[in-house]
Design a protein around this nucleic acid. Structure first.
Length: 212
DNA sequence: CCGGTGATCCACT
DNA sequence: GTGGATCACCGGA
């Protein structure tokens, strides 16, 4: 099993590997099974989606640095948080510094802190939330964890508000497919999920999805 | 399926 | 500074 130190090396290795592998998004699956912890809530990641920078029209970094995407251009291992349609979404920045690449965290299973997560989800929802739905979907995952805009840029590996913890187990079966609801570069198979998990969000194709 | 949502970006005063 | 378009979403029917 991974120990924290090994995991840390693993992430750095992944970031380093991105320099030698043209297709950075291939690093995405290494996050599956890892855990994200904030306060009393821990979520095991079961679905992620990769975004490159200059070569990826669907990426926030495609048109260069702005105030919103600044963290994407910084060093890997930090959290990029942004607002979308009244929700927040979060990414793990992959680095290296100056090269914008990030992995969107799309869904997870709550391992710890179900009551707190459920209370947060209930603030915006009338119907009761089943366990498997607590962190299902990018906005829901952020809400379950209590991530806010103040967590943008936090260091996930040391000293930050949000911690990335090693995987205790890896998905037995890896799903790979197109990204959800993106209007451009729609067919790049850069969404990765744990095919044994029921907490993976449903696939949706964007109405105006262009291929490349 | 559909409508609400609100931050962000850019082109234009 | 303003207006409009865009958007990696969610909830309820």
């Amino acid at each position: 099993m991974d120990r924290p130190g090994q995991h840390r090396r693993g992430v750095r290795q992944w970031r380093g590997g991105a320099r030698s592998v043209p297709s950075r998004p291939r690093g995405g699956p290494l996050l599956l099974g890892c855990r994200l912890r904030l306060g009393g809530v821990t979520v095991r990641l079961v679905e992620v989606e990769a975004y490159e920078g200059a070569d990826d029209p669907a990426s926030h970094a495609y048109r260069g640095p702005t105030r919103r995407n600044a963290v994407m251009f910084g060093p890997g291992g930090h959290l990029y948080v942004y607002a979308l349609h009244g929700s927040l979404c979060c990414n793990v920045v992959c680095g290296p510094e100056g090269v914008a690449t990030a992995v969107l965290l799309r869904a997870g299973e709550v391992e710890e802190g179900h009551d707190l997560a459920r209370a947060r989800r209930a603030e915006r929802r009338a119907a009761p939330v089943a366990d498997r739905d607590l962190a299902r979907g990018p906005g829901n995952l952020c809400r379950a964890l209590g991530i806010t805009a103040a967590d943008n840029g936090t260091d996930l590996l040391e000293g930050g508000s949000v911690r990335l913890l090693p995987a205790l187990r890896r998905p037995a079966t890896l799903g790979i497919g197109p990204r959800v609801n993106v209007s451009t570069a729609a067919d790049r198979p850069w969404r990765f999920w744990d095919a044994t998990s029921t907490a993976v969000s449903p696939f949706k194709r964007h109405p105006k999805a262009l291929a490349d």
